[in-house]
């Protein structure tokens, strides 16, 4: 850092509000679409793993192995196929969510009390209808707990995508390093944390709306 340079130059932030808003939007898209895709993959896979328990350990091991691969390396492997595009960032981020979402879907389904399941069957629910209308809603709190972890991690990981030119607010992190200018780096880092925390709070709210029966009982963590 140059001598005499303040830690944060507030005027810079004021001058860049529009641009910051644009990159914030991009950042949210890059961070949250993978969580949505991950959920769309994890729900059916979780249901299958719940039904056929033997399939669960290998599925989880595969998801954990994917999770252990550093994002930078995984981005580079996909560059070959999808180029320097947003997809190259979103595919690895989607894969990362699986190691959190699949076990939470399975645990959530496992937490459905047996009498509830039997009651649904006795009322004439078909298996599919029972899973969709009875078991999945009961699993919501555990699934949302996983979605919260996945969303927060995903939003903070997006920035690494800047190394292939697609990092949302990560743009300001590399820019600040090139210019030896800490203001954009601090601004982007704080904004990313805020995005993650606000998303987390909104997910807690969404869970309360999705599970009206749990309200007021002090349940749902």
């Amino acid at each position: 850092m140059r001598d005499g340079e303040p830690l944060v130059r507030w005027a810079w932030i004021g001058d860049h509000v529009d641009e910051l808003a644009h990159y914030t939007g991009v950042h949210l898209r890059l961070g949250l679409l993978p969580v949505l895709l991950g959920l769309l993959i994890s729900i059916p896979l979780g249901i299958l793993c719940h039904r056929w328990r033997w399939a669960y350990p290998p599925t989880l091991t595969a998801a954990n192995i994917l999770y252990s691969i550093p994002s930078l390396a995984l981005f580079m492997i996909f560059v070959r196929y999808t180029g320097l595009t947003e997809r190259t960032v979103m595919i690895p981020l989607t894969l990362y969510t699986l190691s959190v979402l699949i076990p939470n879907v399975v645990d959530g389904l496992a937490a459905v009390p047996d009498p509830v399941r039997q009651a649904a069957t006795a009322m004439g629910f078909s298996t599919v209808r029972r899973v969709v209308q009875v078991e999945l809603p009961i699993a919501v709190p555990v699934v949302v707990a996983g979605v919260r972890v996945a969303a927060v991690s995903s939003i903070s990981l997006v920035a690494v995508g800047q190394l292939i030119g697609q990092g949302g607010l990560g743009y300001y992190i590399t820019r600040g390093l090139q210019l030896d200018f800490p203001t954009p780096i601090i601004t982007a880092t704080v904004l990313i944390m805020l995005l993650a925390l606000v998303t987390d709070a909104l997910l807690v709210l969404a869970q309360r709306l999705l599970t009206p029966w749990a309200r007021g009982k002090g349940a749902a963590a």
């Binding site: 972890v149 927060v152 991690s153 690494v160 990560g170 590399t174 780096i185 944390m193």
Partner: peptide
């Protein structure tokens, strides 16, 4: 968990 590791290291 919300801290972007990339931002922190560069900072």
């Amino acid at each position: 968990r919300a801290v972007p590791t990339f931002g922190l290291v560069v900072l």
